[in-house]
């Protein structure tokens, strides 16, 4: 059974049909690149998969079950969507990480300091990063925070919208390495958009093309 399956999706935006009869399957280990010109609806497709917008047509199944049958908060912590513009919540980086774990859907999950510190080290940041005020982080640092905030929930699917757009090449490489490592840890897959053709070439195994 595929991890995530989409079938017959269609999306209309202000009378314009962005896509129709769109479908794909994500199997464990898949790295699917979502490509297409600006305005083709790449972000809207990721939002759709995260169930942030009402579904117009088709169906989406996670491990064979619909999002509603998982309950949406549980579904979304297993299919984590990272928007292009990472969002800071009030407080320090560590408070950002802890706050997310307080949601009812993560009951039983505790803040894992050693694991976070390990990831930070891999990303070339020290423990001092945790004490920074999240709202004053640079765009790139905010993307790192957003990635860690999602990774700590142990999602099975990551929906990444331009995950390294604000990062320098060295940090981009580190993020990709961290993602590979996360993928290798279990039954996981990710879907990614990037304006960087080389990153799509390098990181993804298959491509899904959205053409208007």
């Amino acid at each position: 059974m595929p991890l995530l399956e989409a079938e017959g999706l269609a999306r209309q935006l202000e009378g314009r049909l962005l896509w129709s009869d769109l479908g794909f399957r994500l199997e464990a280990g898949d790295r699917l690149g979502l490509v297409g010109p600006s305005g083709a609806g790449k972000t809207l497709l990721l939002r759709q998969l995260a169930w942030l917008d009402p579904l117009q047509r088709g169906r989406i199944l996670l491990a064979g079950r619909s999002p509603s049958s998982w309950t949406l908060p549980v579904y979304r912590s297993r299919v984590a969507y990272l928007p292009q513009r990472a969002v800071a919540f009030a407080g320090t980086v560590e408070q950002n990480l802890r706050q997310v774990l307080s949601y009812a859907s993560h009951r039983g999950q505790a803040y894992d300091a050693p694991r976070i510190l390990g990831w930070l080290q891999q990303l070339g940041r020290g423990a001092g990063f945790l004490a920074l005020a999240a709202e004053r982080l640079s765009g790139g640092e905010l993307q790192l925070l957003a990635l860690l905030r999602a990774l700590q929930l142990d999602p099975e699917i990551l929906l990444l919208d331009e995950p390294t757009a604000s990062l320098d090449p060295a940090s981009t490489e580190r993020v990709e390495a961290l993602l590979h490592q996360w993928l290798a840890r279990g039954q996981r897959a990710c879907l990614l958009t990037s304006h960087d053709g080389a990153q799509i070439e390098r990181f993804t195994g298959r491509r899904l093309s959205l053409t208007p």
């Binding site: 995260a50 942030l52 949406l72 908060p73 549980v74 979304r76 912590s77 984590a80 969507y81 990272l82 928007p83 513009r85 969002v87 919540f89 997310v100 949601y103 009812a104 859907s105 993560h106 957003a146 905030r149 999602a150 929930l153």
Partner: peptide, 16 residues
């Protein structure tokens, strides 16, 4: 909106 949807995307209920 961005904050609210970021929370939803990380498994928050609409109330949270």
């Amino acid at each position: 909106r961005e904050q609210v949807e970021a929370r939803l995307s990380l498994g928050a209920s609409r109330w949270e």
